[in-house]
Write a protein that binds this DNA or RNA. Structure first.
Lengths: 331, 331
DNA sequence: TCAAGGTGCTAATACGAATTATCGAGCGGC
DNA sequence: GCCGCTCGATAATTCGTATTAGCACCTTGA
């Protein structure tokens, strides 16, 4: 149309105007006009092949992205991710095709489209250690939402500061007069659990109190409640919101007063569907903020921005709630 | 590693074994072994450039994909889209980068990554007519979620069957004894509104009753309620759920009985945040099903499957509800 | 012994843009 | 008249894969 070469069009299209490249203003205008009238758009695939980036961010989740079963626990993360991506002019590639093997989705498989994106955000309670290691060693740009232990090297992440938040909750309970506190949950396995447990222990150690641990695996709410009461626990610090709901409901059915007879502190939002009628004392996970920041960190990594700190902990938001009260003075 | 050419690797990788291509089983095994040990994965970008398709489906929405303001009206569509994409082994590209111009997002702009995907699902109450026309004339494979009028040609869509569902609701009201029915809403503009209005008119015409229309634009709930009562309407057929809620609440505040004094019929789910305390008689939009089917239609188009009907109407699910009662007999 | 036919693989090219070395033109200066 | 310089634009190459025509070799049969 304009009689110029493909190279010139490319230069004009990308607005190149540095030292090595010069385009006569008149030519530039002619090309731009042709581009506008034809509505020509550079093929993003070819562009990516040649230029090594395309402002597409992959999003990999170990559960379905639009969940029905997890009570939308992941939804707020995605809201944050989308908001930030939109602001930065990035598109999101949801890696929904990842096949399930061994009970979970896998990042690496024989038709992995992850590399189509410039980088990738990883979402899930626990990430596969081998896959994480491979990402790190291969130098794939990625960010984990949620703190992760080293995997063949430091893992870039944006996590919730569970230790601090949990310790703060425990200190509130101590300040209210509790001395017999128990941690209800796994307390290990995924980093998010271990981190809560660390905060729990730290705050109790600091106060010279004994931390107790009540594992929840394979135990019914009734068993847990029995164990709590038998141990004389006055404040239960609950890893998983839904467990707190179950115990609170059961306790009330049995005529116990929450928090009069037993304080319950929830360490985060429900990851399983659960009634949210109860106004738990505890904290909220800054999910939207985490999603937002994970995109920030990822794009920072991609641009090799030295300002970007690739490991961030975001503070959790304390919730006053109504399930903490001073313990009854036992005779 | 194996001493074979790139071409051979490509052939093995794709498991080609037709008439024209032959690979000795021994060679094939050697190459496969090398692929496994190195963890080699074909670059999806180059693959796409060469092969013209990559099992990526674009998703374009005229509002944010993970919405906070629209009361998650679009969420169920996306659940369906994701489910079907996952089943078909497709990834989803969320076109979040689309810039806002003239108050809405635009598909076509100077850095449009849409063509990275094989095809595209369009979501939104109303799609821009010019953009739609351009998609049709350019032969871009796409599917609209929601019926659309022709735009330079037939538009592939998976829509809700609003005319039938609305007519059914109206017939229920007629069967209950109502004779003075009014349609509350725009009744025009987006296809979804016009379709409801058509169903409304059709059912009333069929029964020999006069259809009344009460436009809602720029009128407060109070004005609307006044107008309804002044006109002697006994059953209000409400286009937008949230309007129904506002009118019902106001009516009850004024001491009116819903549905005793006024029946209210809701034509679908809330698209604006609204209380769902009221159990409206009406119907539900099969959103998940629509999302699912839209992906089916899109992949059908991509494979040029002659079985695929590119325009589908999905039935809405009737809801009995508690806001329809026979009209009071006026003295 | 040689054409015919089959087998296994590769060279070459396409895909569409980004990048860079290079080339030609025009212009002064000596 | 020739060299050197700047300005503008382009030819050629690159990215990594898919595809296809065709080559070299082997077997078979007459």
């Amino acid at each position: 149309m304009t009689g110029v070469s493909q190279a010139t069009v490319s230069l004009v299209l990308n607005g190149r105007d540095d030292g090595n490249v010069r385009i006569a203003p008149e030519t530039r205008a002619r090309v731009l006009h042709a581009i506008r009238t034809t509505g020509y758009v550079a093929d993003p695939v070819a562009r990516r092949l040649a230029a090594r980036h395309n402002r597409i961010l992959g999003v990999f989740t170990y559960e379905p992205v639009f969940p029905t079963g997890t009570g939308d626990f992941y939804h707020p993360f995605l809201v944050g991710i989308e908001e930030c991506a939109e602001r930065l002019g990035c598109d999101l590639l949801l890696l929904t095709s990842a096949p399930v093997a061994g009970g979970r989705r896998r990042i690496f498989h024989d038709d992995n489209r992850l590399r189509l994106a410039d980088g990738c955000v990883l979402l899930g309670r626990s990430l596969d250690h081998d896959e994480l290691t491979r990402l790190v060693t291969e130098g794939q740009p990625f960010v984990s939402v949620g703190r992760r232990d080293d995997a063949g090297g430091p893992v870039p992440y944006v996590g919730a500061d569970y230790p601090t938040a949990t310790a703060a909750v425990v200190r509130r309970a101590l300040a209210a007069g509790h001395t017999a506190l128990a941690y209800l949950g796994q307390g290990s396995g995924p980093e998010s659990h271990a981190d809560r447990m660390r905060g729990f222990r730290a705050a109790l150690d600091e106060a010279g109190r004994t931390p107790r641990h009540l594992p929840t695996t394979d135990r019914s709410p009734a068993e847990l409640l029995d164990a709590l009461l038998a141990a004389g626990v006055t404040a239960a610090v609950v890893e998983e919101y839904a467990d707190g709901v179950a115990i609170a409901q059961l306790a009330r059915e049995r005529g116990l007063d929450i928090p009069g007879d037993l304080s319950i502190l929830a360490l985060g939002d429900p990851t399983r569907p659960a009634s949210t009628d109860i106004d738990f004392t505890g904290f909220r996970i800054p999910r939207r903020e985490m999603g937002w920041q994970s995109v920030e960190v990822l794009t920072g990594l991609l641009e090799a921005d030295p300002e970007t700190v690739p490991q961030r902990l975001v503070p959790c938001q304390p919730v006053d709630g109504a399930t903490l009260a001073p313990p009854k003075v036992t005779p």
